[in-house]
Design a protein around this nucleic acid. Structure first.
Length: 580
RNA sequence: GCCGGCGUAGCUCAGUGGUAGAGCAGCUGACUCGUAAUCAGCAGGCCGUCGGUUCAAUCCCGACCGCCGGCUCCA
């Protein structure tokens, strides 16, 4: 069995060779493997590649593969390499920067193409069995936006044609889970040019939003959180103290009113701190857990907006915990447990945990950062959780634990976050009186579990394909009278179900039953309650599940008790057979 | 913000250098029907916006706006 990563990496070289044949002046940057294939960053002087170029590249690649050209490995001196790659500015830059300490470097050659490369590669080009050049995107030299823009050409590459085909099929299926499509189909939320990046929540989407808030509020209450609400705009001076005007300015919206500069809040913490400082605090009040469903506005770059996943205004299920140093670890572990419990409730078992440490632009003493980061590690290790490090990706005021989840196409999004902050409390002069009658500075933890309600809803949509568990379905049941004669009966059933707290609608259009079912099915409504003459005469309804299963007729009461049971238990099932 | 692509009716999409079509949705009427699309009629568009080229632009060119895929950045 060939090493797939060597195959993919080799495919990148073959693509480079093909590009070089088509555009002899092409400059090559980096060409690594990816999770599904490979890419190569290139710069073609006076030409920008378009989709139409991809089949041409692919065709030449196929010829190269057919030619079974051998990959030759050589170690040459750096000077020789500099001569060999004289016309390739990015290779020269690599040699003079990253590889400046090496006396010899490794190169691979196949056919007329030679590349600076550590390897390993396959023996010959014929060993590549299944690939496809599939898309083209922008990038920058060394991934730095202040550098020259390059073009990145992506390819897919697998061990076999079947695997490639399967992958493409899977991706096509995945695209149908896209929350942006489903959100439109199910009328959950919408967008307008008048507010780029600002989601409009429609009645059904807002229902989900409210249910999530209700769910979270209950759990917060169980865990000793109080809830507050702080204003959306506060004077700029506050944000100067917090450091936002220095460290977060490019993401902030401002508003000038009465000759005074206000900041539209990008975070909830400064407002929360003002609440903390309203009274003289005692150690007896700690740990003080204060939650806020805060709507924050952040000016994100236009190019990064992405459905509900990346917006410019979103609601955080935020909370700030103020505690004594010695309580910190316990609080952190509790938050981690809480977070994982919530993800379990929603069936999100596939998350990745990161610890993001000190960014380049940060306030405070690096030694304090180191200590805070270690505390976060400890909290995860107490629970035996694996995590990876994100170098320099912490918040400007503290390191953070990040809980990331994949969307339908495998892109990672951060949901929950736990941030440890030793800096804002001292910047704001927060204190409490200890049992020793001395003044102390509390430690502060920022935490969000859903992260952003909007993003969480997006992930929930992609995980369920819009077929939500009943408890969170915006419309839980729809009553379908077979003919107009049953419309009155449908109304009476509607009343009964509403009284039981169900979210129900009726379809009294003059369509045929099949059409009504189709419409309900497309809306992913869990229960379709058919009533014809038989049912109307017996105070019954015929229950059809979203899965297509027909449960037959039953008393309205029986339906209510089973549905309520499913809803109250937040079950992912639609029906509890053991209750029958 | 950067690179590339795209922008036609509420939605999904055809189409042409000579001022536009389909299906679904909507409205009206008929049908009253048992588990994924009943039939007929009607209505619906400054072809994203602003400039330019042209006798003539929805189509060609440019700018802007928005969306999509990446890069960078982040909940």
């Amino acid at each position: 069995m060939l090493d797939l990563s060597a195959v993919r990496h080799s495919a990148a070289h073959i693509m480079a060779e093909a590009i070089q044949r088509l555009y002899p002046k092409a400059q090559f940057a980096y060409g690594p493997e990816t999770e599904e294939g490979f890419f190569y960053d290139v710069k073609i002087p006076n030409h920008s590649l378009a989709k139409e170029d991809l089949p041409k590249i692919e065709k030449i690649m196929k010829e190269i593969v057919k030619g079974k050209h051998k990959f030759h490995h050589e170690n040459i001196t750096r000077d020789e390499a500099l001569k060999l790659f004289a016309g390739q500015k990015y290779k020269v830059l690599t040699l003079t920067n990253q590889l400046d300490k090496e006396s010899t470097v490794s190169v691979y050659r196949q056919g007329n193409f030679v590349d600076l490369c550590r390897g390993p590669h396959i023996e010959h080009t014929g060993q590549i069995k299944a690939f496809k050049v599939n898309r083209i995107a922008g990038s920058y030299w060394l991934g730095d936006s202040s550098n020259e823009p390059l073009q990145r050409i992506y390819g897919l590459c697998f061990d076999s044609k079947d695997e490639l085909k399967n992958y493409i099929k899977r991706m096509e299926e995945a695209r149908t889970r896209d929350h942006r499509l489903i959100g439109k189909q199910l009328k959950l939320f919408s967008w307008h040019d008048e507010g780029p990046g600002f989601p409009f929540m429609l009645p059904r989407g807002r229902t989900i939003f409210n249910l999530l808030v209700e769910y979270n509020r209950k759990k917060n209450d169980d865990r000793g959180y109080a809830e507050i609400h702080t204003p959306s705009m506060l004077v700029e001076e506050l944000w100067r103290v917090s450091g936002h005007t220095d460290y977060y300015r490019e993401n902030m919206y401002f508003s000038e009113v009465d000759d005074h500069q206000f900041v539209i809040k990008p975070m909830n913490c400064p407002g929360g701190i003002l609440v903390y400082k309203e009274e003289r605090r005692s150690y007896r009040e700690l740990p003080m857990r204060v939650a806020e469903f805060g709507l924050v506005h952040r000016h994100e770059l236009s190019g990064v907006l992405h459905g509900l996943f990346r917006v410019r205004a979103f609601t955080q299920d935020d909370a700030h915990i103020y505690c004594a140093m010695e309580d910190l670890e316990n609080e952190l572990v509790n938050i981690v447990d809480y977070t994982l419990e919530v993800y379990r409730d929603f069936g999100f078992n596939d998350y990745i945990i990161y610890i993001a440490n000190r960014p380049k632009k940060a306030i405070g003493d690096p030694a304090v950062w180191e200590k805070a980061t270690q505390t976060l590690r400890d909290a995860l290790e107490v629970r035996g959780l694996d995590y990876k490090i994100k170098e320099g990706e912490g918040a400007f005021y503290g390191p953070k634990i990040e809980f990331n989840i994949k969307d339908c196409l495998g892109r990672l999004w951060q949901l929950g976050t736990v941030q440890l902050d030793f800096f804002l409390p001292s910047r704001f002069g927060m204190e409490y009186i200890g049992s020793d009658n001395q003044t102390h500075t509390p430690a502060m933890v920022h935490r969000a579990i859903f992260g952003s309600l909007e993003r969480f809803i997006g992930i929930l949509i992609e995980h369920t394909k819009g077929a939500f568990p009943v408890w969170i379905s915006p419309v839980q049941a729809i009553i379908l009278p077979i003919t107009d004669d049953q419309n009155d009966y449908a109304q009476s059933v509607l009343k009964q179900l509403k009284l039981s707290g169900l979210r129900v609608e009726t379809d009294t259009t003059s369509e045929r039953l099949q059409k009504k079912i189709r419409n309900a099915q497309l809306q992913k409504i869990p229960y379709m309650l058919v009533c014809g003459e038989r049912e109307a005469n017996n105070n019954e309804i015929a229950v059809r599940l979203r899965t297509g299963e027909d449960l037959g007729s039953m008393k309205v009461k029986e339906f209510i008790s089973n549905a309520t049971n499913i809803i109250e238990s937040k079950s992912k099932e639609l029906w509890n057979k053991t209750l029958d």
